[in-house]
Design a protein around this nucleic acid. Structure first.
Lengths: 136, 136
DNA sequence: AAACAAAAATGAAATGATTACAACTTGAAA
DNA sequence: TTTCAAGTTGTAATCATTTCATTTTTGTTT
């Protein structure tokens, strides 16, 4: 771990409770773009009392403080990403997995003049089929 | 109306029932990126027996046949767009309105080499504050 | 035109993600 | 150590969406 998760949260103005550290730690180690359910059920193994409400609350706090990204690429479930560096996403319509897409210059996409709109966030979503699923 | 909605649907392989024509007509006349609820409650005025399930079914058919776009820019509600020409979208975090954003070259955004991913759709979403809401 | 079959529409009920809320716990400050 | 605000928990409510059985419509065949 490069930086302690506790410090990571404090630097972003998030009080580091045990539960918040656990969720943040999860997001900084598994870049699978997990759903609330996945985070909750995985963490429950080592923290049996962790409630799903807390996972919801925590993710809300993390997103509000720029410590996580909220993705709406998947119509079924909101997904979260601990990688807050701007990047695009791809969802496979075959297997449902979400991947990062590097090499898309989001800065460039955003810089265009947009008629006085004040843009705070840019999301680029691709849908299609991953290499695995193309074979089938 | 440039082309009859009935013809418009037939050209896209959608059987033009009364309900489908009504929904498609709505999307081709109101580019407000409406929710299912908005479509249903507006159309209900002139078609009191229209069920919300039918609106859901119809929108699914329209999206599957490329006659409408489904937007997930708004976390609360799925929104639909009768403008299927590729374009970016903006949602105002103040008032919640969704606007089209012209001048973003989606072709260019998509053309980049993405490691063998087969991309069938690209969505570009901006979030922020519209001119009106910036004043407040 | 009657009979039929397939497709579409309907409304009620079920599902499932998310939110609201009241009670309980924790941890830092006085 | 008492106090208080913030955080956590579990249950219940909410609300968008889906499922499903029934009814209606439509087009086709006799």
């Amino acid at each position: 771990m490069p930086v302690k998760v506790k410090t990571y949260l404090q630097e972003r103005g998030v009080k580091p409770s045990m539960q918040r550290v656990a969720v943040m730690h999860y997001l900084l180690n598994y870049f699978t773009h997990p759903t609330v359910d996945e985070i909750h059920s995985d963490l429950s193994k080592s923290m049996p009392t962790l409630s799903k409400t807390t996972v919801y609350n925590t993710l809300k706090v993390l997103v509000e403080n720029g410590a996580a990204l909220q993705l709406t690429i998947d119509e079924k479930n909101t997904r979260y990403d601990g990688n807050t560096h701007p990047h695009a996403h791809f969802i496979c319509l075959g297997c449902g997995k979400v991947h990062d897409v590097e090499g898309v210059d989001l800065e460039a996409v955003t810089k265009t003049n947009h008629n006085g709109l004040q843009i705070t966030e840019t999301q680029v979503y691709y849908k299609g089929y991953c290499q695995e699923c193309q074979k089938k």
